[in-house]
């Protein structure tokens, strides 16, 4: 019988255990992937499916106003969408763990709460990075030819993963707050109007002026436009507004703001589990 659970209380030990526990919890997701490869493959290929639909079916209509190739225009948008969809993954996982008692079991173990969140973070970020790579490769196969200079590519990937990291904290918060399957479904439906009311798929120049401005103010537009500017996805859509002029700044500021708001809110939600 194993009774020796010696107390690792020195700070270095604590840090070592934090890393070990984080890895164990992330490994749990990787095990899921191995146990159901079909579902994972579908998740990674879904953005490719969307890309095909937009290019093949809608490219002719939406692309008219962009001047250049619609593929070059829409690819940064599709990559932004891929990161945005991470919200659903995080939210669903957090909500399922909370409702099935897995969260409580973690909380009844002598591990730090930080490891549980960090494990989720590692798993979700790796998942989304794979999705990003798959989508980008599929785009290249479709004929997407971005202007790739190493610094611009690094910056574009950085902006996209930063958006995903912000979605992680929104997802944790929503997943802890929304208890029912109906609530989860509602969020899954609500992501669509948010995607369409942006420059992710559609050039805002084709919208009425007031609507175009609202669309350009979206955090998703900021990320898509910033990536377009970095990778040469045609001219800034919708002409020169304050939002498109400052897209790179906004692509960093919006996620930063979301993190500043939702990270403490998520921590508060975890604490409120004790009330």
């Amino acid at each position: 019988m194993t009774t020796s659970t010696s107390a690792p209380d020195r700070p270095t030990d604590r840090f070592r255990w934090l890393l070990a526990d984080t890895w164990t919890i992330a490994l749990r997701d990787f095990t899921h992937w191995r146990n159901r490869p079909g579902i994972m493959a579908f998740g990674w290929l879904f953005p490719v499916l969307m890309m095909t639909v937009f290019i093949a079916l809608l490219g002719g209509v939406f692309g008219m106003a962009t001047g250049g190739s619609y593929l070059d225009f829409v690819m940064p948008g599709i990559l932004t969408m891929t990161m945005f969809f991470g919200l659903e993954g995080t939210m669903t996982a957090i909500s399922a763990d909370a409702s099935k008692g897995v969260t409580d079991r973690f909380r009844s173990l002598p591990i730090g709460g930080l490891a549980v969140v960090a494990g989720r973070c590692v798993a979700d970020m790796v998942n989304s990075a794979i999705g990003l790579a798959v989508t980008a490769l599929a785009g290249l196969a479709f004929g997407w030819r971005p202007d790739v200079s190493p610094p611009a590519t690094v910056a574009a990937v950085g902006i996209l993963l930063l958006l995903r990291f912000a979605m992680l904290w929104v997802g944790i918060f929503v997943g802890l707050r929304v208890k029912s399957q109906e609530g989860i479904t509602a969020v899954q439906v609500l992501v669509w109007p948010l995607l369409f009311l942006s420059s992710v798929f559609i050039d805002t120049a084709t919208m009425p002026r007031w609507l175009g401005t609202i669309a350009e103010a979206s955090p998703l537009s900021a990320a898509a436009t910033a990536v377009r500017q970095l990778l040469g996805g045609g001219a800034s859509p919708g002409g020169e507004t304050w939002f498109t002029d400052h897209a790179s700044l906004l692509a960093v500021a919006y996620p930063a703001l979301l993190i500043v708001v939702f990270l403490p809110l998520s921590a508060l939600c975890y604490r409120h589990l004790r009330r």
Partner: peptide, 15 residues
Amino acid sequence: IGLVGQYAAIDEEMS
């Protein structure tokens, strides 16, 4: 302590 809650708190997707 060990805790066995009202719901089987195990990961259904794993063995």
